[in-house]
Write a protein that binds this DNA or RNA. Structure first.
Lengths: 200, 200
DNA sequence: GTCTATAACAGGATAGAC
DNA sequence: GTCTATCCTGTTATAGAC
């Protein structure tokens, strides 16, 4: 593992834990087991480091969803699969979504420019195509809008993850209860989505 | 309007705009049109100021939802009403939810203690009671869990608000399109929720 | 209560030896 | 490529005049 890799990993850990503003170059250097000077040798500024971390995390957060819709399973199975895969991914990486969302709000113009330049594009093409085919076959509700399907899916899955402390507090849950709740939601969310998509 | 009120309002504006870590006492003083010294006369630390801002915003974010379930409308109308009211509230105060969520993640223990001490409690008692009554009357699906209804509602409504830059980017929307999308979602979300709640 | 001035410190960034 | 030492700026917070 190269020094640069160690730095990026350390920076990701620190920034996801604290957010960009509270992340400390000192702390990143310690996590990477190097000194601050060397940190600036590899990345000339905190901002430059953020760019790399953001690119990495942003591509990760959509990869899972994209892959599912590449497969050749029946459509409604794909929805269920997507919900399961994406839930599992976020359960394993719970700090990712809030970091991305906070960053995009902190400086929308900058991040949009970055993404356009990098050609990054949320890979929902597969889902879109499949919805249209489903409508033709009469499986999918005709007035369904693809963008809302995506928003519904992400909102339903993501909210309980990013609002973990609030969810635990509101429902008076311990950690085990909370994990169980996240697990239960996979089925619940799948059913809601499929129910909404299906032609009546 | 007292100086203290001006300070709290200025602090809320600043902290919601930038987040706690990036919020500057200097900038809060300027917004309140006083100097930094006086700011510390009223609030001895940034942390003390945050406490007040958090309490204020946290109570606001649940008030709207609580009120709806106090009324004596038919149950499914209340769901629709809640979705509309809450959507409108968040459209008017788009920075509130991300601030609350970020804060609770930044220091969960502190905020939980604060809320317990203040006796703050998300007011979903009304919804809970009504769901149970609905089940008895056969209007509501028997295996429905109240905590998931709340999570579904908030997730569906809140995500497109806190992820505004991402939503605009993903769907290539301008501001007018985005506002329209938020407006359209009220009906979409109501239908999804009611459909999920109704006994088949 | 309100102001000015300044302390005390921590942050990111740089220079230069090795 | 890696380190130590240091600069410079901006931060919160305090002291003290009015």
């Amino acid at each position: 593992m190269t020094t640069e890799d160690k730095i990026i990993e350390a920076a990701e850990t620190e920034m996801l834990e604290c957010g960009y503003d509270a992340a400390r170059m000192r702390s990143i250097a310690e996590k990477a087991e190097i000194n601050k000077g060397l940190l600036h040798y590899y990345f000339k500024s905190k901002e430059a480091l953020l760019t790399r971390v953001f690119q990495k995390t942003f591509s990760e957060i959509f990869k899972t969803l994209g892959e599912v819709f590449e497969s050749d399973k029946p459509f409604f199975e794909k929805i269920e699969l997507a919900v399961n895969q994406y839930s599992n991914f976020l359960i394993r990486h719970p700090r990712l979504p809030l970091f991305i969302i906070s960053e995009m709000n902190r400086d929308p113009a900058k991040h949009r420019a970055r993404m356009k330049k990098a050609g990054v594009n949320p890979p929902f093409g597969g889902l879109l195509k499949e919805l249209e085919e489903g409508k033709k076959k009469g499986l999918v509700r005709k007035d369904l809008k693809a963008e809302h399907v995506v928003l519904n899916m992400i909102g339903l899955i993501m909210f309980p993850i990013i609002a973990k402390p609030m969810v635990m507090f509101m429902n008076d849950l311990n950690l085990a209860d909370y994990k169980q709740l996240l697990h239960d939601r996979k089925k619940i969310v799948s059913e809601i989505l499929i129910n909404d998509i299906k032609a009546k």
